[in-house]
Structures are given as C-alpha cells and as structure tokens.
Design a protein around this nucleic acid. Sequence first.
DNA 1: AAACCGCGCAACCGCGATCTG
DNA 2: ACAGATCGCGGTTGCGCGGTT
Length: 280
Amino acid sequence: MGRQPCCDKLGVKRGPWTAEEDKKLMSFILTNGHCCWRAVPKLAGLLRCGKSCRLRWTNYLRPDLKRGLLTDAEEQLVIDLHAKLGNRWSKIAAKLPGRTDNEIKNHWNTHIKKKLIKMGIDPVTHEPLDRKQASPTTTSQSTVTADSKSGEATRQRSPQPDDVVVRDMSAGGNSPPESSTNTASTAGGSSSSSSSHHYQDPLVKWLLEEDLPTGADEPWLNFTAGNDADEFSSIAAAAPSLPWDAGVTDWLLDYQDFGMGDSSLLVDASMVNNSNGSNF
DNA sequence: AAACCGCGCAACCGCGATCTG
DNA sequence: ACAGATCGCGGTTGCGCGGTT
C-alpha cells in the first residue's frame, strides 16, 4: 500500500554539497520544478536523499535568497516576531522576504539570544531576567558591541533598535492580533511586547501590520515562455547577494553552457523583485 | 609559530502534520 | 478508515575559520 520509500539511505551521499551537485540540483529544479522531492535526486542524477535536496534548495540555492547579515530592521522584526510566535522560525522567516528559517534560527542563536541576555532580557519569554538587573540605559549600548567577533564589529549597529527592545519589553503592552491563535507555551503568555505603534521604524511597523506575501513564494516555478537569458542575467545583477556571488557557484554565471539559457528555465524578474520588494 | 578556543554556518536528525493509495 | 509515505519544521551537531594566548 501507499508510496515508495523516501530514500533507502544506502548509497546516499551526505555532508557538504559540492559545486557540481549544486549545479545539478539547480539545473534540474529550474527545468522541472520540484513537484516531488523524493524523485528529485534520482532525476537530477544526485546521490542525495530528497530531504537533503530540499534543504539545500530552500536554504542556499533559491534564486530569491538574500545573503549576509540581517539588517537592524530585520533583526528588530525577528525579535518582535519571536516574542509573538516563539520558535516558529518558518513563520518568522515568512515575514522576512529572502531569508530562510534556518538563517534566522542561526542568527537568533548566535547573535540575538546573546544580545538579549546581555541586555537582561530573557530570550525565551522576552521578559526581564531580573528586573533589578535590567537597566536599559546602561546596558544596551555597551553590550551590543561586546558580542562582536569575526567580523561582527564591522556591522553598523545602531543602538536605537536595542533601545526599542528594552522599552517594549519593559512596557508590557497589549495583546497582539495573533495571540489568540498562539499556542506556544514560551512566548504565548508573554507575547505582549509588540504593539506595532511602539515601532518608530516605519518598515518594521508595516511588516508587523501587513500580511505580507510570504518568502515561501517560488516564482521560479512559474516560468514563462516570454523570458530570456538577458532577463535572467538582469535578475542576477539586481540581486547583489545571491549565493553564487561568493564564487563557489560561478558555474551559474555560465548557465547557458549547460542549458539554463533555455527560455523555459528562466525566472520571472518581476516576481523576484516582488519577493524582495521590501528593500531592507 | 603553534596550539587552543569560540563563533558562525551548513547540514543532519527526529518528529508531527499532512497526504495518498 | 487506515497504514504508510512524504513534507516541513525545529533542535542539534560538526566543521571550518579567525582570533587569542
């Protein structure tokens, strides 16, 4: 009964993806889409399981991905959404176009969590760890820069977003619109920090108020016959932080060499632009 | 100069939800 | 209706790199 096994794990390659594997997967998905992840590795000629292919695609190869550190506005939005939603990274990521749940999760664990702790804020409940300890005026600015390491110091961190956090967290606040459906035990009871009017940043305010088109949109699945190679090139040029900028996947720049120049494979530029339309 | 340490990120794992036959 | 496959999510791990001692 039912379906075939997902993957038999025997002969399935694991570990870091090579440029060649990326090339195969990217080429395949841009050509055929990913209606069935189980079939993708076999059809693409990859010795990977479908799960691994999906992860690689969603976290690294998707054309609409942003790369690089989160901006202050994005970080602030993540903090607030986390206060509302808890560790529902996919929901949070859906509010940040071009960002993946994995990326946000990593950033939370490596940056934001520590930052909040240093500020005297419990990263789980978003409540002050110790109300006596939480002294925003003395901790926020000095500790924000303290966690910088390996390039973090180069980030242009403004103290203002942090000040907003402290103000919001200590202000209590009223019930967020989504709180009625929020069943997360950690954030649910204390998810009161985010009355959107607290945000001076209009972008953050807008993102919190609007039900955005999610970053999960997959415009590359909506290929149109009218697209051409020049259009694809313009998309790549317009997206300064696409993964292949790092040089690891330079092959993508030569997509015509392996058939991606075919008009049927190309991404609708307008849809890509829409997905990144918030211009962080 | 070498060893050690901490950080950041990519990838894996396991589980629950959903779908399919 | 049920069993099993598939998908998607969140937690965790492992490795490479850069900084420090």
